[in-house]
Design a protein around this nucleic acid. Structure first.
Length: 795
DNA sequence: GCAATCCATGTACCG
DNA sequence: ACCGGTACATGGATTGCG
């Protein structure tokens, strides 16, 4: 038997009649690509008896039933907890995953069975969980060399006996082989479609410095695909990364390959990419990662394009090189000159994808490791599922049964408390907030599905906490499931933060741990939302309702305490309070709050100047270091044109610094005059809005939907979640919807400048300046006939 | 009869 | 496919005035 270091990258399984076969794909301590095979793991599920008195009868029946069926390995009684209550259930273990469905169906409707549990945990995840294996960690594996042949593309195959966490190397990553790729299509009309479009070009960039292009000019389409496949098999990447590949490139490429009778057998088992969980595409033995899923987490980037993401992450494009963002790119192949642009664009895209991925890798590996979700799934999985997999791991460690997902009706409940702001300019404002308010409320009041008491008749008031307003009681002892999970998450985070203090900020270990800390924070902060999510396995509405109710009580009491110290309160939202900065009062206030409420509150930041309008959730502030925070206003909303955002940002800056509206008014008038003279770049006039549902599900036709419809008519695919960019043109119609046009089909001369003056620039500026009683009359009026006469004659 | 106001719809933000 | 609270644009329906 050998021992070796192993870093799990991917897990797959196959089933045969007598066993399931797990393949753990990964990298060895000697940087070899290896696969560890385990055929000894048996799938199982639990049958919950209707009541504990029917347990024996059910057990005998199932045992009898199983004795005549070789597919069942064992039927046994086992002690578990279900929502915190001890329960004896029957564990049915099968010899292969092939028979799970059959056996579940066989006994699901048995009169003595109340429900079947954990048959909905996939065999591969079951394996990782039961063996306590987390992806992206080093393990010490006890293995035996596999003797025999197997059609897999790895350096070595082993049979796995056991493995345990290896703590010797600190937090490190293996040397991964990464392949970034970009595909360009030729589509004469609209978006590419598998039947009528062609693969014009595939570009590849690897982290070993290889650049490669397969171009329709040099070979036919079939050859492009086969060259691409061969390249992948030869280079043998651990990670394949692209941009928008899960929903676009891979499905299109696979359909096109089928039409051309070509295969894309690029996995480490020589199989084709497969649609898998959470809409991601899986490639056996490798991690296929879509940077679009990563970009979802970068909420500051409103329009998720490669150049914007690159810019945000501080990745410089080579001098003079640019990425094309126009949808007309699909027709470029037809034009000889544009072909050159297309080729350059594609090569650059592949390089940029690789660079973005290198920056994202520490976070992705840590999120994968913290949640336990495989590297290729973790970004594709919605936040609720990431939280849930963390919970599932904890449940299994605690011997808790995993509930099933259920269909439930939606009833809203009351959420957080928001204080009306004092409008106007304020100087020297301290922003105080509770650290991790909701997680700490859940910990303090032991709010959890298993501590919730539907009835408290037999208990004395000392034995439970009672949520205010909503009246939901929760047992004080023992610690509930959420409390255990959240304490673990919070202590994990503070431990990591402690470690970070002793590390060089420039070191790789610091980078990894810092990203680990961020991953833990994301999970902890999503736990409250998870409790109120209808899709949650551990959904118990009173938990969410009670947590929000405690939150309201706490922030209201905090406001009272602030008043008692005669602090001037400017604003507050959920877990924060904005007060005039009087340090002595504030330190006493903090002391009292922490003593009375038992939660930590701290000064988060100081604004030397800040401004509020009448509206909640919108403010701007100047920080001592000169940076400016803008919260909620149009300037940070992706559905206003860039010009309006830019104007508002500048207005905010001028107002905060001059504490007067005058320079801002002058500035805005300058912009309006530039706009009239057509001096504003066209791109700054595009308005982007998201298509949030299938087009035929809209009850009215807002501008962006009208534009989406016309794009669809032109052959463009518009999917839910896509952003549509339009500009407003002059026209006879009063309706905006009829004057909004796809941005790439409009000439500057057709732009309705008045719309941009009166519906974009002026409202964005006035939102801020109205606190000084500035009105529309303080700005230049709209264009007159004279203006347009002038424009026609100016060069 | 017409302007002012109300209201439903839709999007994107805050914490 | 984490929650509720909130602001605001748009455009058609309703109201209020006389």
């Amino acid at each position: 038997m050998d021992k070796l270091l192993f870093w799990p990258l991917d897990i797959t399984y196959t089933s045969s009649e007598d066993c399931g076969e797990i393949k753990l794909w990964g990298i060895s301590g000697e940087n070899k690509r290896i696969v560890l095979v385990d055929r000894t793991f048996k799938p199982y599920f639990y049958a919950v008896p209707k009541n504990q008195s029917s347990l024996e009868a059910l057990f005998r029946e199932l045992e009898k039933l199983s004795r005549i069926d070789k597919k069942v390995l064992s039927v046994e009684k086992t002690e578990k907890y279900y929502f915190g209550k001890p329960i004896t259930v029957i564990k049915i273990t099968l010899i292969s995953p092939l028979y799970l469905n059959e056996w579940e169906n066989k006994i699901r409707r048995h009169p003595l069975v109340s429900e079947i549990l954990e048959s909905d945990i996939r065999y591969s995840m079951r394996y990782l969980i039961d063996k306590d294996i987390y992806p992206c960690n080093w393990y010490l594996a006890n293995v035996e060399e596999f003797k025999g042949s197997s059609n897999v593309s790895v350096d070595q195959i082993f049979m796995l006996n056991s493995m345990s966490l290896y703590n010797g190397g600190g937090v490190t990553l293996p040397k991964l082989k990464i392949l970034a790729f970009d595909v360009q299509w030729y589509s004469p009309k609209g978006s590419p479609k598998p039947e009528t479009s062609m693969v014009a070009l595939i570009s590849i960039a690897t982290n070993t410095g290889i650049m490669k292009q397969f171009f329709l000019e040099d070979m036919d389409e079939k050859e492009i695909l086969s060259s691409f496949s061969s390249f992948i098999l030869n280079f043998d990447p651990d990670i394949i990364v692209g941009f928008n590949i899960n929903k676009f490139t891979w499905p299109l490429l696979l359909s096109r390959a089928k039409i051309l009778d070509e295969n894309l057998n690029i996995s480490r088992e020589y199989s084709s990419p497969q649609t898998s969980l959470y809409g991601h595409i899986s490639i056996a033995g490798r991690a296929n990662i879509d940077l679009m899923d990563y970009a979802e987490s970068l909420y500051e980037i409103k329009i998720k394009t490669l150049p914007r993401i690159a810019e945000y992450l501080g990745i410089d494009l080579p001098e003079g090189e640019k990425l094309i963002t126009s949808p007309l790119i699909y027709s470029y192949w037809k034009n000889k000159e544009k072909r050159v642009l297309l080729s350059k664009h594609s090569a650059l895209s592949a390089k940029i994808i690789l660079e973005i991925f290198k920056k994202a890798l520490p976070f992705i590996t840590q999120l994968s490791n913290v949640t336990g979700l495989p590297l290729d799934q973790v970004l594709a999985a919605p936040v609720g599922f990431r939280v849930e997999w963390f919970l599932i791991r904890q449940a299994v460690k605690d011997n808790e049964l995993i509930p099933r997902r259920a269909e439930r009706p939606y009833y809203p409940y009351k959420g957080a408390f928001v204080l009306k702001p004092r409008s106007g300019l304020h100087e020297n404002i301290a922003v105080l907030d509770f650290s991790s308010m909701y997680p700490n409320i859940m910990i303090k009041y032991n709010i959890s599905p298993d501590t919730y008491l539907p009835s408290v008749e037999e208990l004395s008031p000392e034995e439970f906490w009672m949520a205010p307003e909503v009246g939901h009681p929760f047992r004080k002892h023992p610690p509930g499931f959420y409390k255990r999970v959240l304490e673990k998450l919070l202590s994990l985070r503070s431990e990591i933060k402690k470690q970070l203090k002793n590390l060089q900020p420039s070191s790789l270990e610091y980078l990894l741990l810092d990203n680990r800390q961020k991953a833990v924070k994301i999970i902890a902060n999503a736990c409250y939302g998870y409790t109120g999510w209808l899709g949650a396995r551990w959904y118990v509405k009173p938990c969410a309702e009670a947590t929000a109710a405690f939150g309201r009580k706490i922030i209201k009491e905090t406001i009272s305490i602030a008043k008692a110290y005669s602090l001037k309160i400017v604003y507050g939202d959920t877990d924060s309070i904005f007060v005039v900065n009087e340090p002595e009062k504030i330190s006493k206030f903090i002391e009292t709050v922490e003593k009375k409420l038992g939660l930590n509150i701290k000064i988060d930041k100081i604004y030397t100047v800040c401004l509020f309008t009448e509206a909640a959730k919108r403010y701007a502030g100047l920080l001592p270091d000169g940076r400016i925070d803008v919260i909620g206003f149009e300037a940070v909303r992706g559905d206003w044109c860039e010009l309006a955002q830019e104007v508002q940002l500048k207005v905010i800056e001028l107002v905060l610094k001059a504490k007067s509206p005058l320079p801002a008014i002058k500035y805005v008038n300058g912009i309006i005059s530039n706009l009239k003279r057509q001096k504003i770049p066209f791109e700054k006039l595009i308005i982007w809005k998201t298509i949030s549902r299938p087009i035929d599900k809209y009850e009215v036709v807002p501008p962006h939907v009208a534009v989406a419809k016309s794009l669809i008519d032109m052959g463009y695919a518009i999917n839910v979640g896509d952003k549509v960019g339009y500009v407003v043109t002059k026209g006879d119609s009063k309706k905006l919807s009829e004057r909004a046009k796809p941005y790439f089909m409009v000439n500057y001369s057709d732009i309705d400048i008045d719309y941009y003056i009166s519906k974009q620039v002026i409202p964005a500026a006035l939102r801020i300046l109205s606190i000084f009683n500035v009105t529309e009359r303080n700005f230049l009026r709209k264009t007159s006939t004279l203006d347009s006469w002038f424009i026609k004659r100016s060069p």
